[in-house]
Amino acid sequence: MTTLHKLLPTFIVASSILFTSCSKDDDNTQPNNYTTVENLLNEINFQGYAIVTKNGNDLVRQGFGLANESTELPQDFNLAYRIGSVTKTLTSAAIVQLKRDGLINSFNQTLDEFDTEFPNGNQITIAQLLSHQSGIPDYQLVVEQAFEEGQTLDEADIYNVITDLIAENGLNFTPGTNKQYSNSNYLIAALLVQELSELPYHQYIQQKIFNPLDMTNSYKGANIININTHAQGYLNGNSNSTYPMTIAFGAGDFSSSPNDMETWINAVKTNWFTETEKTEIFAQDVPNGYLDFGLGWFTTQEGNTTMYWHGGDINGYWSMIGFIPEYDSTIVILSNKQDNTGLQRNTIIEQLLTNEFN
């Protein structure tokens, strides 16, 4: 039996590294009296661009703070931000597209069908990759250490690191018996996209998602941002936008704008997926007060309100996109001020579900 995560009183959020949890008792950014989304974001000192809609009306659509404090560049609807693990929603959609293209037959196919030498590959399905049920250990800390020591690894090298970790230490748990967030799942999924489509992963995303939806400000992130097209990322008041993006391959390496992310959310909540696909992708029947993983998306259930979403964190930035069907709500929050604790995202989710969508 898989494990669900209790939503209240603790929120558990996805980051590019791991889950971080915060209790309301420890959250010093909790607003005293909720009034509006704009006031909430001001009260928690949010910096970035936020879009929240409800039943066709904007609750907020504006920038907060500066996109670049040195040049005094304002936040902007079409400015790019690193989106971190929100990338995973694109990778999972690419896997769905592979199935549409007939390049995979089922999400229940096992990894050994694609790599006969993958350790325990006969136990791990594509669906378990995308829903973090594989038990595959996360490579990130190991690979970041290698980069700090001067090694240069590409995605194929990181794949070998993952298989070596499994060969040496085994899986973290028997596939399908638990759920544990791991970037390894999505690097493997992105390589699967690349192998089966015979196109570079980012090119496949461009052709199958960005071009049809006219998402012109979404692209593979560079190690160093272009300050003419990106909001500058910050940590503790200092610029912090450099990261070896190969480490985040398929798991967190895209940049996008609020405009494009709104386009993506609106497509997802309407007709980008078929109704049959939606029942496979989004976790169903989540108990009140709990969070569960689907195929590239989280489902949070609070009372009669269901929120589908994903978050991300990467040097200098944090992000969250999602939607709430009961209120025809679209949520896009892209920040250029890194929040290592996840407190801002947790607070926003809690306050929206408690005060705005209930």
Score class of each variant (00 low, 15 high):
K269S: 09
T91A: 06
N68P: 12
F19P: 13
V37L: 02
Q128A: 05
N105C: 09
I314A: 00
F77N: 10
Y81A: 02
V37H: 02
F118C: 04
P258H: 05
Y81V: 06
D154L: 01
A14Y: 01
V286T: 04
T35Y: 01
T270G: 03
F298A: 15
T89F: 01
G322P: 07
H230R: 05
L199M: 12
T274K: 15
N45E: 10
L213M: 10
R82N: 01
D138Y: 05
Q62R: 11
L111G: 04
A50H: 02
K179Y: 00
G102D: 05
D164I: 09
C22F: 11
T36G: 01
W297H: 13
V142D: 10
A189Q: 07
T35W: 00
N68T: 07
S319H: 15
E38D: 12
F273I: 06
G84W: 09
D285Q: 13
I321A: 07
D58Q: 10
Y34L: 02
T53E: 05
Y204W: 01
D25Y: 04
T177W: 08
N28T: 13
K99M: 09
L40P: 06
N238T: 09
D112K: 06
A283I: 08
A156D: 15
Q30T: 04
A267D: 10
Y34H: 12
N266A: 07
Y186D: 04
V193H: 05
E326H: 10
F11L: 14
V52I: 14
L130I: 02
N346T: 10
E155W: 13
S92W: 00
Q133G: 06
D25V: 02
G221A: 15
T330E: 04
D164P: 06
T163H: 01
Q75N: 14
E117A: 09
S239C: 08
D27W: 14
Q344M: 13
T279E: 14
M307H: 10
Q206T: 15
D313A: 15
Y219M: 12
Y34I: 03
L153W: 05
L66K: 11
N42Q: 14
A248H: 07
S21Q: 12
E113G: 07
L66D: 06
G252Q: 04
N240H: 15
N217C: 02
Y234P: 00
H230D: 04
G65M: 06
L192N: 03
A80G: 04
A50Q: 08
N178G: 05
T125E: 08
S256I: 07
T279G: 11
L295G: 14
E148A: 14
Y243K: 08
N108G: 07
L111R: 12
D214N: 15
H310F: 08
N45W: 03
L90D: 08
S257R: 09
T2I: 13
N236Q: 14
I265P: 00
I349Y: 08
I265F: 08
G48A: 01
P9F: 03
T299S: 14
G322F: 08
Q123H: 13
G56W: 03
G237S: 04
Q151C: 03
L153E: 00
V142G: 00
G252H: 03
T300F: 12
G65C: 01
D214V: 11
A167Y: 05
F293E: 11
E117Y: 05
L4I: 07
G150A: 02
Q62K: 13
F19K: 11
T110G: 03
Q109M: 12
L18Q: 13
I324V: 15
N238P: 06
I166L: 02
Y308K: 14
S257D: 11
I124H: 06
K54S: 01
Q151F: 10
A50S: 14
